[in-house]
Amino acid sequence: MPVNLPTRIAFVDDDANLLSSHRRNFGRLKPDWDAAYFTDPHVALEAITAQSDITAAVLDIHMPGMSGLELASALRGVRPDLILIMLTGYADLQSALTAVNEIGVYRFYPKPTNLQTIIDGIENELNRRYEQHEDSLPTAFLDLFQLGVVAVDDALTISHMNAQAAEVMRTSSLVRIGTQNNLVFTPMPDGLDHFLHPPTNLAPRRQQSFSLEHDEEKLSLFVRRMDKRSDGLASFMVILVDPQKQCPPAIDDLMDLFGLTRSEAKLTQKLAEGLSLDQAAETVGISSSSARTYLKTIFSKIGVNRQPQLMKTVLSTIPSLRS
């Protein structure tokens, strides 16, 4: 049933050119709606708080002075009914999980996303609310990723799953959804249970890669330990990757996913392109000695101990987050 309620949308982005484009196109795409535009998140916070007729806010995640996540959190505290949509120029798993689970962001879109797509998403949510459907977890919250991403607890019970992960499970015999709404791997990756349930006397690893193989079928996993949920349970992101789909990783992807510094990411990228350590060091502009020191830290962060393992993990985990 169409929504007939007054609808006013706030766009908050420090990119004035993008906001100008929205101004030019919004009225043509949705003439019965209204919009407000803000380049300053602090001004936006005051205005959206005071103007109860603003139904939804579309926020850029990276803004000077106040991030989109900070603005979303502040708005959620005063406007629990507000539809929050986040735009990001690059993939950030932890931010996506925080935005959905802790702040209640409705949808996470890559930047740029067609304005019509954003409007359609808002309208769908308004219609859902109008029809009083029972709220459900936004399982498409990570659809911006080209990778299959699943959020689970330490029993591999699924809380969120994006469309790409569903497609991997549809086509692969190595992973499926069990009767208890949990991830089931056949065979079970060696070391996965130990990673999920580390001994109490050992500090838990932040992330680890795994490989599954049966007959001629292969599947790569990258499991990252996330912040604990509000109920205190452990939380993990499981990334499912077909190792056949490989391309050189982007520096920001390496930083986001593995927690590398920019210098470490640059070195890893050059190694992934097939350069030797000395060649990579020269290209990045560091000494061979520094490169060897960086490499030890990279090994530790990614959870490997040899360069071939590093390349296999990086290339199989990041086919492309920005393609």
Rank of each mutant, 00 (worst) to 15 (best):
A91N: 02
R170I: 05
R8L: 04
L82P: 00
V152M: 00
G77D: 07
L126K: 04
A44I: 01
R306E: 14
G65D: 05
I302W: 05
T297L: 14
S172K: 05
L115G: 02
L29Y: 13
A151Y: 06
I83E: 10
A74P: 04
I103T: 01
D14V: 03
T98Y: 12
D135W: 03
E102M: 11
V184W: 09
L156P: 01
V43A: 15
P64V: 04
N182A: 14
D14P: 01
S95H: 11
V150I: 15
I48K: 10
L275Y: 00
P308M: 08
D13S: 09
S20P: 06
S67F: 03
I85M: 13
F222P: 00
F145R: 06
Q164Y: 02
D231T: 05
S211N: 11
Q207T: 13
V238P: 07
L144D: 01
Q116K: 14
L137I: 09
T317N: 06
P112E: 05
A50Y: 11
C247G: 13
M86Y: 06
G303M: 12
D231C: 06
R229K: 05
N201T: 15
L183W: 10
N182W: 07
E102S: 12
I85P: 02
T297A: 14
D15I: 06
P248R: 12
F26N: 07
N201S: 13
E213F: 06
F38H: 01
